[in-house]
Design a protein around this nucleic acid. Structure first.
Lengths: 247, 247
DNA sequence: CGAAGTCTTGATCCCGTTCAAGGAGCGTGG
DNA sequence: CCACGCTCCTTGAACGGGATCAAGACTTCG
């Protein structure tokens, strides 16, 4: 069921590209640096995925970094005991597989949650560009440092053993902010992942997620119709994420 | 009783330096690259700290990266509500403050847990070297990618909501491995941090840590005298960390 | 339509927290 | 030297948040 329809060269710019974190990198990468001839391989290629398609699988050699143009991707870790764990959601404008950069291969499965378009930056090209361009160097370092800081921030609520309510509220706000950053509505959007996935990601049972959604809706903080989510009281939600004991 | 006899300027090499993750970086940094005159500022300076001394404080401008030569450092996050949370332990040969590299200032307090010696790599110098030397570039990228992978690995047991036993076992093994990597004994060492600190780091109550230590000792997995720890049955400990239900 | 996956809600249970009290180690000053 | 105070550690008892088990409703798709 994994039919991947790739085709487009990098001729036309996607809407999402404008606010993509890799936009600058992308532009730099597309114009072959002075001194190389025009036969330099295309640095970016696009892949189009449908719900359930794999962007990569655990154990695949790590050839490229993926940047989500549109749609969303989740990464799943396969445990030896057969269970799987969701380790991240990647929205438009975000990178995937950064955590595998020190290895030679992918340590997770990357799966599209909906119809999704991904730009792939070939590592060989990226590293070459790193040597040639100080701008690329700076961008790459900045990117990685941002990711480090992001990961550390993500770690805190988990270690701090925040309550399930706080965690879910923080998760919804994180989605909201990231969507808003890319120009989408941050207060009315669709959850591309299941309750189960959210639970796995946050370390909570799917039943708990369900119960919390119900409570948040009863309290008027959110409004939920299947997977369509509206943040009717974002400030209150932020309060809950910060540990307000109102609920 | 923590009297460490260090004194050396950068002329002679510390023991710990041989296995330090930054050793190569350090060597590269010390010899001014060709083309710069000898007046180039010394890239590394040493700081000696005693138990409780601050290596840096939250809000301090980020001038340098620290590498622990000997001893240990913990990082504490100060929450708005006045509580603090331990976010990391840094042993000999390890970096501190990598997570702050994307910011202009430190986001944590760095505190020595015992008599500790730290090399500081000035960022300005490091970035300059990055531009001049491909070797430094490669080392810096590798370093950061390793840290990213390390952080992600750390995230998993927390999200997976491992039991307290699994978490503590994994924590002890992590300490053991990191010490062994630097040439210390991995099966007989001293905990430089309190039960409280361990609990804060793992998201558990200090009482729970205490109880677990007692149980592990009764089971013959470890032997504990105050803070002197011996792993009497490392394989069993590894089993517990992996989720064996033996205890 | 039926079948499978997803979501909701209820009842019970367990692990780790919290509260509380006491013990052990250590430095200080009499 | 011991008494004192402090911090850290240990152990017990009760509570509670979230997991688990179970059953039923809704959605999606062949």
């Amino acid at each position: 069921m994994l039919k991947t329809v790739t085709a487009n060269p990098v001729t036309s710019e996607f809407n999402a590209c404008r606010r993509c974190r890799a936009a600058r990198l992308c532009r730099l990468a597309r114009k072959p640096p002075a001194g190389t001839d025009a036969s330099t391989k295309v640095v970016l290629r696009h892949r189009r995925l449908r719900r359930g398609d794999y962007l990569y699988r655990t154990g695949d050699p790590l050839h490229s970094l993926g940047v989500v143009c549109s749609g969303s991707v989740q990464t799943c870790l396969l445990h030896p005991d057969g269970t799987t764990q969701i380790t991240g959601f990647h929205l438009a404008g975000e990178f995937t597989a950064l955590g595998d950069m020190n290895a030679k291969q992918h340590t997770r499965d990357g799966v599209a949650l909906e119809t999704t378009c991904v730009c792939e930056i070939l590592l060989s090209q990226l590293l070459e560009l790193c040597h040639e361009s100080p701008d690329v160097r700076r961008d790459v370092l900045q990117l990685v440092f941002d990711q480090l800081a992001h990961n550390e921030a993500q770690l805190l609520p988990l270690v701090g053993r925040k309550s399930a309510t706080e965690q879910l509220a923080a998760f919804l706000l994180s989605l909201s902010e990231r969507l808003a950053e890319r120009g989408f509505s941050g207060e009315d959007f669709s959850l591309s992942m299941s309750r189960q996935d959210i639970g796995s990601y946050l370390g909570l049972a799917k039943e708990t997620i369900s119960r919390l959604f119900s409570r948040l809706e009863n309290e008027g903080v959110i409004s939920l119709d299947a997977r369509r989510l509206r943040l009717t009281d974002p400030r209150r939600l932020a309060g809950l994420a910060a540990g307000a004991t109102g609920l």
